[in-house]
Nucleic acid binder design. Structure first.
Length: 258
DNA sequence: ATGGCCCGTAGAACGGGA
């Protein structure tokens, strides 16, 4: 089974690329972020034609998350939950569902804008509430995967120019502390389970020809519980998706598990 | 050089992204 995450930066714009990708590589579960679609405009019909069911939660203009499941292999998402009950939040950033015995969470962490911004305070609080909400879910050791755009580069090796980024939003110590707090709950960064090439990132700015120059950050992640860790066979970043015409600024990340 | 580009909502610029 393959589980993927992709910040699409508008599902309306990226739908043809998503369908083309899934037709070539029929990933079983796809977590999406930044769909930027109200629920009434979610492309359920086009996805159904491609063989996928969907759980989704959107709003106008901003945010929006979804979980797609390939009907033929993993069926429909069950026990769908939207948001975090510990946080009253109009921003649609979190959706969970059970798929093939795995609790799957698609998360779009706040960006934070800058460390002196109100949005940064919101980001840290959002993650703190996420930690509180996750802790009891992880207690029973059941298989769970937290996937999404974390908007955190956990270590300097996840940053193309650590000196230039030092202390800034996405790499600041309070954000990295919270990433480590997720790991302390028993979650493991699937990408780091394997030997990986250096300078592998998941996001590149649209400006400055950043992708061509590989000026990127690794901020999209797949974290798995101990119950899944031993089943993970591969974790890869689909860099090819960033090379396409009219790409998302994020590349998908995929895990293959037994 | 503190912007560059892309997206949605607009129906011109602007907020937001990272």
């Amino acid at each position: 089974m393959q589980i993927a995450t992709w910040n699409v930066n508008s599902l309306k714009v990226r739908l043809p690329q998503l369908l083309d990708w899934l037709s070539r590589d029929p990933v079983d579960v796809v977590c999406l972020q930044e769909t930027k679609l109200v629920d009434a405009k979610f492309p359920i019909d086009a996805l159904a034609q491609a063989g996928y069911a969907a759980a989704y939660s959107g709003q106008p203009t901003y945010n929006g998350v979804a979980i797609l499941t390939r009907r033929e292999t993993v069926g429909e998402p069950s026990d769908v939950a939207i948001g975090n009950p510990l946080l009253e939040d109009p921003q649609q950033r979190l959706i969970s569902a059970t798929v093939a015995g795995v609790r799957v969470i698609s998360a779009y962490f706040p960006n934070g804008q800058s460390v002196d911004s109100d949005k940064y305070v919101y980001k840290l609080g959002w993650i703190d509430r996420l930690l509180e909400w996750l802790q009891p879910q992880l207690a029973d050791g059941a298989p769970l995967a937290l996937l999404g755009d974390f908007n955190i580069a956990p270590e300097d090796r996840d940053v193309h120019d650590p000196a230039a980024w030092a202390g800034q939003v996405l790499v600041s110590e309070p954000e990295r502390e919270r990433f480590r707090a997720l790991e302390a709950l028993g979650l493991v960064d699937a990408f780091r389970l394997f030997e990986q090439p250096e300078k592998f990132y998941t996001w590149w700015d649209y400006r400055q020809m950043a992708f061509r120059r590989n000026m990127g950050l690794r901020i999209d992640h797949i974290l798995v519980t101990g119950a899944l860790r031993g089943r993970v066979r591969e974790c890869r970043i689909e860099r090819e998706m960033r090379k396409r015409e009219q790409p998302s600024d994020h590349a998908p990340v995929v895990v293959r598990i037994d």
